[in-house]
Structures are given as structure tokens and as C-alpha cells.
Amino acid sequence: MIQVKNVKKSFGKHEVIQNMNFSIEAGEIYGFLGPNGAGKTTTMNMLTGLLPLDAGQVYIDGMELSQDHEKIEKIIGYLPEDPQFYPYMTGQEYLTYIGKISRMRAGEIQERNNSLLHLVDLIEAGDRRIGGYSRGMRQRLGLAVAVYNHPKILFLDEPSSALDPQGRRELLDIILKLKDDNTTVFLSTHILSDVERVCDRIAILHEGIIHLEDSIENLQEQYLQPIYEIQWEGDCTPLKEQLKKAQWLEKIHTDKNRMTLYVKDRKKSQRQIFEAFSKIELPMISMGLKRSTLEDIFVKVVNNK
């Protein structure tokens, strides 16, 4: 659905995007992560045709961006990080304006306005001037504008940054609903828990270069730490001596009824670990493998570069 080939962009002497390549399949939710100034918004602006590329090609739904820009505009939606609206217009009027620019018929516009205001929970505020909206309300109106033309591809730049937890959850539900309708979503956000919840694949951008691109499952598997956290029913300190001699063990920590095991090779030693545990008489309450969060992975990738 989206193919980015050797894209470069500079502002003056500063190379913001250096030879960027990636592709996104139809119906996929693609998380685009990176620290501030990594080039995320510049990438968004280029993919939506708001900024010209210095080099490279972008193909959207098989069409080349610079050649078929007008056709592409009809199938994409874009929500910028801080969407700006005419403060003197009401939400309804603004959506009508967008409908007219998108060359929709009057009846269709009214119907679409109502369904979208309902979707983003602005039905009551629809007749109020946007100048009096909160940042979160403007963000939701921005989302309504972005999806106005039933886009095949939706570009969302930090869509939940201004929303409260309830608003964020609703936004993520909307994104998941769009995925069900086979909409491709290109999502840039700092809120990594949002990415973990909705994205199929992610890319981590740092200083204009994509350093990592994979599915969340693969990344978590790849970055999984060989650490087991176990909780016992009683004091587990005496077990320390019993397990210390095991060949698969690298390090052991105990604290009353809590135990942390650092193992040498998680996959190879898994069987041996359970065998060792079966010989212990003290009942076990829980056992879990410590998983790397996306935040751990993000920090690791950004700091290692």
C-alpha cells in the first residue's frame, strides 16, 4: 500500500531524512517511533505530499506521489500533531467546508458530518465555535477531518498526545475499527503503550535513519530477557543453595518469598529449570518471564546508535 524508496530530505545543510526505505501492507497499522527531531513529522509531510522530496520515490496504492498527487489526495487522510482550525467556525461548519473541498454532495456532507461528530464524541459541541474547543476536542475534530473522505490510508501524527486516558482509549478503539475496515494506518506516537496495543509492525527512526523495523511479537522475542521472576509461598532463601549449583544458572537473587533467576540460555535451559523446580517442596505461587517492553527496546535502539 505504501512503498518508500531511497527518500532523502534536507533543510539547508541539515539532512533530516537519510535514504529512507520501507513498505507497508494494506490494512496494516504501522507504528513510526523516534525521539523528538528524528524526522517523523517531516516523513509524514512528505508522504502526504505537503513537502517535496529531495530524492527517492514514494508509491501510494501503486501511484507515484509526485505524478499522481491529486488522485492520492482522494485516498489518504492526515491528522497533523497540532491540527489548526479557523477559530471563528463551528465544528459543523468546518466539516461542511472540508466536505465541499472534497467535492461531496450537500446531502452526503450533512450525513457524513453527523456520523463523524458522533464518532469523535463532538455531537454536542458541533455548533460551538472551534475557538472555544480544548486541545483534546480539536484533536478529535482533526481525526474527523482526517477520515472524512473514507481514506484507504490514514496518517496520524501523535494523535493521542493531547487526549485524556478515556479519549486515548476511544481513539485507539477507532483506529482498531478502521483496521477492521481494511484501512492502512501510519501512526507516529510517543506513547509506546498505544503502539503495543494497536500496531502490527513498528519502525524506530533516529537521526533520519530507520534503525529497526519488525513486528512487535518478533521484537519482543528478539529482545526477550532470560530472567525469570518467581514468587513462593514462603521464604525462598534456603532454595538459593539448592539451585546455585545448576549449570544453566548465571545468577540468583532472593528476597523473602521472591526469587529472580538469570539463566544462560533461555530456550535450552527451559526443561532443566522446570525439572529443578519439580524437586522443590515449597509451593510456587507464580512464575513469569520478564518481557522487554517496547520502551526498553526503544531506549536500547536509540542509545546504541
Binding site: I76, R103, V145, Y148
Partner: peptide, 9 residues
């Protein structure tokens, strides 16, 4: 202000 309308054609 002109950005959003521009993305809609």
C-alpha cells in the same frame, strides 16, 4: 490553517 484543507484536495 490551510494545511488540513490542503490534504483534502
Amino acid at each position: 490553517y490551510w494545511i488540513l484543507p490542503r490534504t483534502k484536495g
